[in-house]
Design a protein around this nucleic acid. Structure first.
Lengths: 333, 333
DNA sequence: GCGCATAACTAAAACGCTTAAACGCACCGG
DNA sequence: CCGGTGCGTTTAAGCGTTTTAGTTATGCGC
C-alpha cells in the first residue's frame, strides 16, 4: 500500500500547532488573524510533506461540495463538445468541478445519473443536449437549481441558454448576399424544430432587408443527413431558374449539396456558392473546397450555464439567455 | 431555501431506531443481522421521506470515494467518445462515478485537473487520448493507480489498453481482397505513428498471405487530412497500372480519396473500391456511397480500462491489453 | 501595577455517515 | 434455575475538515 497521505491533523502535530491554525493558514483566511510567520511555516510544511486537503471532508464540514452536475447526450458526438469545455472552464474559475454524466440519450441512464449526482450533493445541474430541442427532464432535477443548454423544457423554473438561430441564419444569408447572389436557396431542416424555424426566419429577414422577394420554391426541407441535402440541393439546382447561392441548415446537408453541385458540373464557389451551419470541423474544414459555415457559440453557452447557476446560488433571479454564433469564412462562397 | 434533505439521523429518530440499524438496513448488509421486518420498515420510510444518502459523508466514513478520475483530450472531438461511455458504464456497474477532466490537450489543464482529482481522492485514474500516441503524464498521477487508453507512456507501472491496429489493417485489406482486388493501394498516415505502422503491417500481412507481392509504389503516406488523402489517392490512381482498391488509414483521407476518384470519373465501388478506418459516423455514413471502414473498439477499451483499475485495486497484477475492432460494411467495396 | 485591548492561537463541536464492539434478551439444554 | 447461544439492536469511536467561541500572552495607557 502506498503511503496513504497525511491529514491536516498530522500536519498540525508535526508543526506543533492546532488543526484550526493550520486550516486558517492554508485557506488564507483574512477574517481571522494568523501571524505571517506561522502562515508561511504552515504553507511550506504542507508543500514539503505533500499535504493534500481532503475535498470530501472539506465538503462535509463546510457544507458545500463545489460540485456541479453536468448531464448530457453530447460526448460521443462531434456536436457541442465546446459546451463541456466552456462549462468546465467557468466551473474551475469558481473552484468547482464538473461531475459529468454522459447519457447517450438513454433516459434511464439519465435518471440514474441524476440520482447519483444528487447523492453527491451537486450544487446545481447543467443539462445540455447536442440538438436544439425540447427536453424531458428526469423528475429528480427539481431538487436542485438547473440550467438547460441547447434545449428548453416546460418544467417551471428551468432556465435555458440557447444559440441565436435567427441571427445565425441571417449571418449566413447575408454572406451570400454580400457575394452578390440574388437567388439564394435554403436547404432547411424539417419543419417544427427550433433550429429549422429560426434559421429560416433569419434567412427571410436577410432577403427581405435586401429588397428581395421570398420565393417558396427556393426553400426545401428534410432531415439533417447528407443524403437529404443531396436530394434537396439537386431539386433546387435543377430548377429552370436555379439559385446561385445555397444556404444549408447543416454542414452535413452541405456535404450532400456539394455532391449535387459536382454531379452537375457546377464549381463551388464559382457557379454555386454554399454556406453551411454547425461548423463541424471534420466536415466543414475537409470538404473541398472548405465550407464557409456558421459556428454556434458552444463554449460561451457552457460558460453562461455555469455562471447562471452561480447567480442562482447567489440568490439572483436568472433569465433565459441567447448567444449568437459567428460566421467562419472558408472557401465555399 | 429548499428543504435541505433529511439526514440518516433524522430518519433513525423518525423510526425510533439507532443510526447504525438504519445504516445496516439501507446498505442491505448481510454480515450483520437485521430483522426482515425492520429492514423493510426502514427502506419504506427512506423512500417515503425521500431520504438521500450523502455520498460525501459515506466516503469519509467508509474510506472509499467510489470515484474514478478520467482525464482526456477527447470530448470536443468525434473520436473515441465511446471510450467515455464504456468507462462510465463499467464504472456504474461497480457503483462508481467518473470524474471527467476534459483537457483539450492543454498540459496545464491536465495538471490542474489531476490535482483536483487527487484532492477528491479518486481511487484510480484513466488517461485517454483521441489519437493513438505516446503520452506525457503529469507527475502527480504517480499517487494513484493509472490506466492509459489509446496511448502509452514510459512511466513505469502505467498500464495501457490499446486498439489492435495490425488486426484492423489486416481486416480492411482482407475485405478488399475478398472483393477480388489484387492491386491494393495504401493511403497511410505519416510514418512513425503506432497507427501508421500497425495498419501498414496488417495490410502487408494480408497481401502476403494472399500470395501477392508488396509494391512500395502502392503505399503512400501523409497527414490525416482529406486534402492529403486526395493528393495521395490521386497519385495512386494516376499510376500507369493503378490500384483498383484503396485502403485509407483514415476516414478523412478516404473522403479525399473519394474526390480524387470522382474527378477521374471513377465510380465507387465499381471502378475503385475504398475502405476507410475510424468509422467516424459523420464522414463514413454520409459519404456517397457510404464508406466501408474499420471501427476501433472504443467502448470496449473504456470498459477494459475501468476493469483493469478495479483489478489493480483488488491487488491483481495487470498487464497491457489489446482489443480488436471490427469492419463496418457499407457500400464502398 | 492594574485593567483592557488586541493579536495569535486553541478547544471542541459540528458535518453525515460506517463499523467494530458491546449489549440485552429470549430461548435452550441440563 | 443457571449458563450458554444467537439474534437484533445500540453504543461510540472514528473519517478529515471547518468554524464558533473561547483562552493566553503581550503591550499599552494611566
Amino acid at each position: 500500500m502506498r503511503k496513504s497521505g497525511l491529514s491536516m491533523d498530522d500536519l498540525a502535530r508535526h508543526l506543533g500547532l492546532s488543526r484550526a491554525t493550520v486550516s486558517f493558514a492554508l485557506n488564507g483566511r483574512t477574517d481571522v488573524r494568523i501571524s505571517e510567520a506561522t502562515r508561511a511555516r504552515v504553507v511550506a510544511a504542507a508543500r514539503e510533506l505533500g499535504y493534500r486537503p481532503h475535498a470530501g471532508a472539506q465538503s462535509l464540514a463546510a457544507q458545500r461540495t463545489d460540485l456541479i452536475g453536468f448531464v448530457t447526450d453530447i460526448p460521443a458526438s462531434p456536436f457541442g463538445g465546446g459546451i463541456i469545455h466552456g462549462a468546465q472552464a467557468a466551473a474551475w474559475r469558481r473552484h468547482k468541478l464538473l461531475l459529468i454524466v454522459s447519457s447517450e440519450g438513454d433516459p434511464e441512464i439519465e435518471a440514474t445519473g441524476v440520482e447519483m449526482l444528487l447523492d453527491r450533493r451537486v450544487e446545481g445541474l447543467v443539462y445540455a443536449t447536442q440538438m436544439h430541442r425540447v427536453a424531458t427532464l428526469p423528475a429528480a432535477v427539481e431538487a436542485v437549481p438547473t440550467v438547460l443548454v441547447h434545449c428548453t423544457s416546460d418544467r417551471p423554473g428551468a432556465v435555458s441558454v440557447l444559440p441565436d438561430e435567427v441571427e445565425g441564419g441571417y449571418a449566413a444569408t447575408r454572406r451570400l448576399l454580400a457575394a452578390g447572389h440574388r437567388r439564394i436557396g435554403l436547404v432547411n431542416l424539417a419543419a417544427g424544430l427550433p433550429a429549422s424555424t429560426g434559421r429560416r426566419s433569419g434567412y427571410e429577414r436577410a432577403l427581405t432587408e435586401a429588397g428581395l422577394e421570398l420565393e417558396p420554391a427556393l426553400v426545401r426541407q428534410g432531415d439533417a443527413t447528407a443524403t437529404t441535402g443531396y436530394d434537396l440541393a439537386a431539386r433546387l439546382l435543377d430548377l429552370a431558374d436555379p439559385p446561385t447561392g445555397l444556404f444549408c441548415a447543416t454542414d452535413r446537408m452541405a456535404m450532400g449539396a456539394y455532391d449535387a453541385a459536382k454531379e452537375r458540373g457546377l464549381r463551388i464557389p464559382e457557379d454555386v456558392a454554399v454556406v453551411g451551419f454547425d461548423n463541424q470541423e471534420i466536415v466543414a474544414a475537409y470538404l473541398r473546397p472548405a465550407l464557409t459555415t456558421v459556428a454556434l457559440p458552444f463554449a460561451e453557452m457552457g460558460v453562461a450555464a455555469v455562471e447562471m447557476l452561480a447567480a442562482t446560488a447567489a440568490g439572483e433571479r436568472v433569465l433565459d439567455r441567447t448567444l449568437t454564433g459567428r460566421l467562419v469564412e472558408r472557401a465555399s462562397v
